[in-house]
């Protein structure tokens, strides 16, 4: 069994495993950020982790995301393309800095996000990135621990 963040199961106590999955599922139900934009952020994190299986995944909330945009995000070429709107650009820029370390997030980056999505949107984005990153990392760890792949 090889995992992506969508199928990840780490064998934890059932209540804990279910609670961890519930956060993933809540990302697809939340109303603070456009889901297609969040999917672009997930793909950017996957690319930065060089997580091949994760890059091939399209999450259940990816509905409405253009595959052309996904390709540009995965290739790190989104900066040079015209079809990303201002909010998507802000989220992707924020995601790239978050991946380097949350201490590098600037007030300007944060203000861009609150300008588009409000304070709740900023909190949601940073929580979502945290738990998306968590599932990508765990999928990488458990795939390698189990198979050496």
């Amino acid at each position: 069994m090889t995992y992506t963040s969508a199928e990840l199961e780490v064998g934890a106590t059932p209540e804990i495993e279910a609670a961890f999955r519930a956060i993933w599922e809540s990302l697809g139900c939340q109303r603070h950020l456009p889901k297609a934009t969040l999917e672009l952020a997930r793909l950017r994190l996957a690319a930065l982790h060089r997580a091949d299986r994760e890059m091939a995944l399209r999450s259940p909330w990816a509905t409405g995301m253009h595959e052309r945009k996904a390709g540009a995000v995965l290739a790190g070429a989104w900066h040079r393309q015209d079809d990303f709107d201002a909010a998507e650009r802000s989220v992707l820029a924020f995601t790239e800095i978050y991946a380097q370390g949350p201490e590098f997030i600037t007030d300007e980056l944060a203000t861009e996000i609150t300008g588009h999505f409000g304070d709740a949107g900023l909190v949601c984005l940073i929580e979502a990135l945290g738990f998306i990153d968590a599932r990508i990392r765990l999928a990488l760890v458990f795939n390698r621990l189990q198979t050496g792949d």
Partner: peptide
């Protein structure tokens, strides 16, 4: 598994 989820949660929340 429990340690894995705990580490993942602490990491996500502290980065937040």
């Amino acid at each position: 598994g429990d340690m894995a989820v705990a580490i993942a949660t602490f990491h996500a929340m502290s980065r937040c």
